[in-house]
Design a binder for these strands. Structure first.
Lengths: 212, 212
DNA sequence: ACGGCGACTGAACATCTGTTTAGTGTGCTG
DNA sequence: CAGCACACTAAACAGATGTTCAGTCGCCGT
C-alpha cells in the first residue's frame, strides 16, 4: 500500500513490481526495458525474469496489482454511497483516487495507460466500473436524487467517462487551469463546476424554445 | 486529405507518413519498428530515414501532420459556431471528428496517443483547444445561450475534457453501450444524453424543492 | 548525348533487446 | 553436518532495432 518508503522492508519481488509500475506508467510498456526496471529496483535483469517468467509476465502481474488497487476504490457500500450523493455532492472518481493514493502515486498515470492502450485489462476494468456506475445511478434514481434519463446506459457512460477524463487528461488540465485537479485545491475548484453543471445544466433553457 | 485510395497517386514520402500514422495510432510509437512502417508503405527501411532523417524525425513529421488536421476541425468561424450552439445543440468534438474524417480514419486513435504521451505536441494542441473553447463559451455567454459560470476556466476545461473523453475512451464506450459513439447512430444517442444533462442537469434539485 | 541529382535499395553495422545458462551464496530442514 | 531449495548474479546468446554505406536507377536540363 505505502509507496512513500520504497526502501523499506519490501521483498525484492515487490521492489521490481513497484519499479515496473512507475516506469510503465510514466513511459509506457514498450518504452521501458527490463534492464531499466532491474536497475531502478536495484537488482539484476535476470532476477526479474526469475520472478515473473518474462517481461510480459511482469506486465500482467503489474496489471493485476493495479487493477486490484483500482477496484478497491469502488468497493464501498453502494447504498451508502448512493445516499451520500444527494444532489449537490457528486463524489467523482478523481476524488476517490486522491483520497486513496498519496500525491506522487504512479497509479493514476498507470490507469491512463491501462484505459488508453486498449488492452484487455483496461477493458475489463472499464466494464466493471460501468456496471457499478449504472447501478449507482439506478439506486440514486430510486432515492429521487437524479433526474430520470431516457437512456440509462448512455447516461451512466457519460458520467463515468467525464469522471475519467480528468484523470486521463490530468496534466493538460493542470496546465490549462493552473492547478492539478487531483490536489485538494484543484479538486474543490473542479467539483464546484461539475456540481453546478450536473445540478442546473450549462446551457440556458432558451426563452422561446421548446422544453423537452 | 483522402485516405480512401491509399494506393493512389501519393508520393512515397506520403505513403510512409500515412503508414506511420496508422501504425503509431494503433500500437504506439515505441511498439512500431521502422522496418514495419517501410513494409506497410511498400518501401525499403532505408528510404524512411532518407526522407525523414530518423525515426524520431518521422514521428515529429506525423505529429505535425496530425496536429494540422486536428486544428482544421476548429478553424470554423467562431461567431457562427457560437450561434449554432443555442441551448439544445451542443456540437461536440466527436461530431466534428465524425464529420471530417472517414469512419476508418486513424486520426482519432492518433489523437489519443498524442494526448496520452506527455509530449509537447499534445500539450500544445490541448492548449489551443482550451483557449478556443473558453472563447466560444464567452461568446455564447454574451448571446445568453449559457448559464454564467463562477469559474469560466474550469467550466471550459470541464466541457472540453468531457468531449475529448468520448474520443479517448471510444472503444470502451462502444463495448459498454453497444454502439460506437463516433458513428451516426452512436452520436445521436450520445448527443441526446449530453444535451439533456447540459440543459437540465443530471441531479434532482434538492429534495423537497421544485420537482418537475 | 551527357552529366548530375535525387529517389530508392540491399547489405552490413553497432547496439540494444529479452532471455538463458551456469553458477554462488545463504538459510532452513532433516 | 549434509542436503537442499531458493534468491540472486555475471556473462553470454540470438534476434531485433535504428542507422549507415555504397551503389543503382530513372528523370531532367543543357
Amino acid at each position: 500500500m505505502s509507496s512513500v518508503a520504497d526502501g523499506g522492508d519490501l521483498t525484492a519481488k515487490a521492489h521490481i513490481r513497484n519499479a515496473a509500475l512507475r516506469l510503465f506508467a510514466e513511459r509506457g510498456h514498450d518504452a521501458v526495458t527490463v534492464r531499466e526496471i532491474a536497475s531502478v529496483a536495484g537488482v539484476s535483469p535476470a532476477l526479474v525474469v526469475h520472478h515473473f517468467g518474462s517481461k510480459e509476465g511482469l506486465r500482467s502481474a503489474v496489471d493485476e496489482y493495479a487493477g486490484r488497487a483500482f477496484d478497491a476504490l469502488f468497493a464501498m457500500d453502494e447504498q451508502e454511497l448512493a445516499e451520500a450523493m444527494t444532489g449537490d455532492n457528486w463524489v467523482s472518481i478523481g476524488e476517490l483516487f486522491a483520497r486513496a493514493f498519496p500525491p506522487g502515486s504512479p497509479l493514476p498515470a498507470y490507469l491512463r495507460r491501462l484505459l488508453l492502450t486498449n488492452d484487455p485489462a483496461g477493458a475489463a476494468l472499464f466494464g466493471r466500473w460501468f456496471a457499478q456506475t449504472r447501478q449507482l445511478l439506478e439506486t440514486m434514481n430510486q432515492l429521487g436524487a437524479t433526474r430520470p434519463s431516457g437512456d440509462p446506459a448512455v447516461r451512466a457512460a457519460f458520467l463515468l467517462v467525464n469522471d475519467l477524463a480528468v484523470l486521463l487528461l490530468r496534466n493538460q488540465v493542470a496546465a490549462a487551469i493552473g492547478v492539478d485537479p487531483l490536489t485538494p485545491q484543484g479538486m474543490t475548484r473542479w467539483a464546484k463546476e461539475v456540481t453546478a453543471v450536473y445540478q442546473d445544466g450549462a446551457f440556458a433553457t432558451s426563452p422561446g424554445e421548446e422544453q423537452r
